[in-house]
Design a protein around this nucleic acid. Structure first.
Length: 642
DNA sequence: ATAGGGTTAG
């Protein structure tokens, strides 16, 4: 072979920049990097494009990065090579700040004007990411043209980012077009075999995530099932997809399926746990929640502020507020969301004073309360009947913290005033607020009217709700109940007729109970459970026992115009009672029963639970839509104030 | 050097 040609082909081994500039690599703080920068300016080393690029890489991508400093450093580099352009664009595109994404795109446009450099396969992933984050679809499309012209549309990193750009711009059709074009060749082309499988998994993941984001869980699951291989991230995408779209049972099912897969590399990681916990919280599946906590500890998954927030929320929503407090107190770091988790938990458990206490502690730790914090603290005051405290929190929010009040805040305040009986003040607050009232705030007012028997205001408010949300059952139910309480059965049946005409149905009540790690779900008058027979005999037994204890059913809440006997039967079939009956027959004595309900518990069930806790010597914990009720020895922790 | 997943409230 020609020796000259050989030297041309066998290039000398490339030395990596990091070994070439030890002075830069050794830096461990931004201040040190700044010193090196000054030194390089003095010695004119800044004119060495490689050295300058290496310095820029550290300033913009190391853990102690400073994007503003990086941008000014970049401006000061006399000879920018392609690497330095790519570095600064990447750094800006990785930032979660919308403005940084816009700056990344602007810099890319500038790069196009610089004749000494050409964007390459390292430039496009970053700038596409920036387009995705700032929703710049037009720019994204133009960049796609450039990508095709440069024949970079076969690069896995470019393709996945291109698809992700369309996904985040909500263009699933275009995303799928690129995805399927990429996938057609996979049965016959050699090129396909050469591709990294990991790269393809990412592309599938991006697509599944896309369907998840548009709320199309059916397509997401279809694609997930078709995947040739799945990584932990694939499972995380589908689990968090279910979790965030309210499909909690499906999320847990996927989480358990994931663990059945025989693959040593496929293990739940930090993100898996953070994604599954909200589903566990919502279903109140305490045993599973404990398992997740233990899994994190055993597998050295760091319980930081993020996972900690999810765990605190899980323990409080699963009924173990003490455990939630314990996890909270052991966290190495707490962010505002962590504080919100614990304050929300305390509020749910009716521990209003403690919630206020934690709220005030935030000041000591110099953690600024968020808009959500105020919602939670006001809710706590409302459930605890702490009117003066609630007023003071509300005032602080308006006058000291100068928060912009959202409808939710007014809603909490209206609720607080209503419950305490200040109906007129609540209505005035609503009328004088600068926002348009919605059905939620009106419903809070309506609940107050019902509680304090103000039929005049109640009727007025209910009619407004019906105008605002004509298909919502809330106002009809509340108004019917008010008429029922007054014994005006004619008005009740009139309401029922109206509801029938408008085809309005009450949201079906639904309760869960976790037994041996399995969540059992019951709806009103449920007979579908395999042990339905036993459950119903138990319900009869309970009913007989309670009657002996002097229980008289409170039928005022039943939306039926039937005779007393029938009404009572309907009450027995409320889902929370069925769940408790099932709990009693499937657990040993002394085992506390934890029930979760999707709606608020009705007054009759509340009374019955108190008696059942006494008659069967059981602690019963019911989480309804808003809060916890701990029933023990015949009384409830809410003190009947809810 | 370059892709994918996350916590609170309603």
């Amino acid at each position: 072979m020609n020796p000259t040609l050989q030297t041309l082909v066998q290039l000398p081994p490339q030395t990596h920049p990091s070994t070439q500039f030890p002075l830069i690599t050794k830096c461990r703080t931004l201040a040190e990097l700044k010193q090196v920068h000054a030194h390089m300016l003095k010695t004119a080393q800044i004119y060495d494009p490689l050295a300058a690029a290496e310095l820029l890489r550290h300033v913009s991508l190391s853990p102690y990065r400073d994007l503003n400093y990086a941008a000014s450093l970049f401006r000061g580099i006399p000879q920018r090579n392609c690497f330095s352009w790519n570095t600064i664009i990447r750094a800006l595109s990785e930032s979660s700040d919308h403005d940084d994404s816009v700056r990344a795109i602007a810099l890319f446009m500038e790069m196009l004007c610089d004749d000494s450099v050409e964007p390459n396969q390292f430039t496009f992933p970053s700038v596409l990411k920036a387009c995705a984050q700032s929703g710049r679809l037009d720019e994204g499309r133009q960049i796609q043209c450039m990508v095709v012209k440069k024949s970079l549309d076969s690069d896995e990193f470019v393709v996945s980012n291109l698809v992700r750009m369309y996904v985040l711009c909500r263009c699933m059709v275009e995303a799928h077009k690129i995805f399927s074009m990429r996938m057609v060749g996979r049965h016959n082309l050699d090129a396909f075999k050469k591709r990294r499988q990991e790269g393809d998994i990412v592309l599938w993941n991006v697509m599944v995530d896309g369907y998840v984001r548009t709320g199309d869980l059916v397509s997401a699951k279809e694609l997930f099932d078709e995947m040739p291989r799945r990584s932990t991230v694939s499972w995380n995408v589908i689990i968090s997809g279910y979790s965030q779209n309210g499909l909690f049972k499906e999320a847990i099912q996927a989480f358990q399926e994931m663990q059945q897969v025989q693959d040593g590399n496929l293990r739940p990681n930090f993100v898996t746990l953070v994604s599954i916990l909200p589903a566990i919280s919502r279903l109140g599946a305490l045993e599973l929640g404990k398992w997740v906590h233990l899994y994190a500890e055993r597998n050295k998954i760091e319980i930081n502020d993020v996972l900690g927030s999810a765990l605190v929320d899980m323990y409080s929503k699963c009924g173990s507020i003490e455990k939630a407090i314990q996890v909270f107190s052991r966290l190495p770091r707490r962010n505002p969301i962590t504080w919100n988790s614990i304050i929300g938990g305390l509020a749910m458990h009716g521990r209003a004073r403690d919630a206020l206490d934690y709220f005030h502690q935030m000041d000591k730790f110099e953690i600024p309360p968020t808009s959500v914090t105020y919602i939670l603290v006001l809710t706590a005051c409302s459930h605890g009947g702490l009117v003066p405290e609630g007023r003071s929190v509300f005032n602080r929010m308006v006058n000291v913290a100068r928060f912009e009040l959202r409808l939710e805040h007014y809603c909490c305040m209206v609720d607080l005033l209503c419950r305490a009986g200040h109906l007129d003040e609540a209505e005035q607050l609503m009328i004088n607020m600068p926002l348009e009232p919605d059905d939620v705030i009106l419903k809070a007012l309506l609940a107050g009217c019902k509680l304090h028997g103000n039929a005049e205001m109640g009727e007025r408010v209910a009619k407004r709700i019906m105008e605002l949300a004509p298909s919502d059952s809330g106002a009809y139910v509340a108004l019917s109940n008010m008429f029922a309480s007054a014994g005006d059965w004619e008005a009740v049946s009139e309401m029922r007729l109206k509801m029938k005409e408008m085809e309005i149905r009450k949201d079906p009540g639904c309760s869960w109970i976790e037994i041996d790690g399995i969540v059992h779900e019951f709806v009103v008058e449920d007979e579908s459970h395999p042990r339905a027979q036993e459950i119903y005999s138990m319900l009869v037994e309970i009913s007989d026992k309670l009657r002996l204890l002097g229980y008289r059913p409170n039928t005022s809440q039943v939306l039926l115009n039937v005779d007393e006997d029938e009404k009572e039967t309907a009450l027995h079939y409320h889902s929370e009672k069925i769940a408790v009956a099932f709990g009693l027959i499937s657990t040993g004595p002394q085992v506390p029963l934890r029930v979760v309900k999707n709606l608020r518990i009705c007054e009759d069930c509340h009374e019955s639970m108190k008696l059942i806790s006494n008659a069967y010597n059981r602690r019963i914990v019911v989480r309804d839509r808003k809060r916890f009720h701990h029933f023990e020895a015949g009384s409830c922790s809410c003190g009947d104030y809810w």
